[in-house]
Simulated assay, not measured.
Amino acid sequence: MINEQIRDREIRLIGENGEQLGVMPTKEAMRLAKEAELDLVKIAPTAKPPVCKIIDYGKYRYELVRKEKEAKKKQKVIEVKEVRLSPNIDVNDLNTKVSAARKFIQKGNKVKVTLRFRGREMAHVQSSRHILDDFAKELEDIAVVDKPAKM
């Protein structure tokens, strides 16, 4: 809340340079803010009495937005990369897919491994489970399986 929106009878006031001005009536604090040509902003509304500060509100909002943008910039977005396998994959092809997954993991991304069955391959789902197990075994030195294999 700023300026006239503050309805409390008494507030604890902090000056524009950060000095404590003590507990005073809101009207007196408003007068001091107007003399300094700044705004009276409620900083801690839950305190007894509420804490208000004399600051330039536009500058204050600008600083908050800038801090939020800076925090957002430092966040790392984790992508989920997908590696597709088939049940009749050869050993060398599997090694190629493992090396691709290893690169993704080292860059900080997550890897989703999909074993795709087509047509008659659906009849041999259980015999192809070893492919996913081998894939996980190859990467166990740098990765952990989050979710076990499911149909």
Rank of each mutant, 00 (worst) to 15 (best):
L40W: 04
Y60W: 15
V144G: 00
L21E: 08
H124W: 10
K76A: 06
R129F: 13
G22T: 13
V125D: 01
P50H: 06
K42P: 08
M122W: 12
A71F: 07
Q106G: 05
V83N: 02
N3V: 03
I89Y: 06
Y60R: 03
E35N: 11
K112T: 02
R61H: 06
M30Q: 13
A136D: 09
D56G: 02
A36T: 00
K48L: 09
K147V: 15
P87D: 05
V51N: 00
R7K: 15
Y62I: 04
L64M: 08
A71Q: 14
K42Y: 01
P45G: 13
V65N: 10
C52T: 14
N95P: 10
E140C: 13
H124C: 04
V77I: 06
I11Y: 00
N3Y: 03
A123L: 14
F104D: 00
K73S: 12
L115W: 10
V111P: 10
G58L: 04
F117L: 14
H130Q: 09
N17I: 01
V144Q: 03
Q20K: 11
G108N: 01
I6D: 01
K73C: 00
K72R: 14
Q106V: 05
A36V: 00
G18A: 07
A29H: 09
E37Y: 04
A29T: 02
R118E: 06
A36Y: 00
A123M: 11
D39K: 06
A101K: 12
F104Q: 05
I2E: 00
D133R: 15
N17Q: 12
K73W: 05
T26Y: 05
R61A: 04
R129C: 06
L115M: 03
D56A: 01
V23A: 05
R116C: 02
R66Q: 03
D93A: 09
N17L: 05
G58E: 06
V144P: 01
R116F: 09
E28Q: 09
M30A: 09
K48G: 04
S99F: 09
R84I: 08
D146C: 11
I14G: 02
T26F: 07
D93K: 13
E82F: 10
N88K: 15
N3S: 06
E37S: 09
K53S: 01
P148H: 13
F104L: 00
R102E: 13
D133S: 11
V144L: 07
V65P: 04
K110T: 05
K53D: 00
A71H: 09
I105D: 00
A33P: 08
G18S: 11
D56K: 02
I89E: 02
A47K: 12
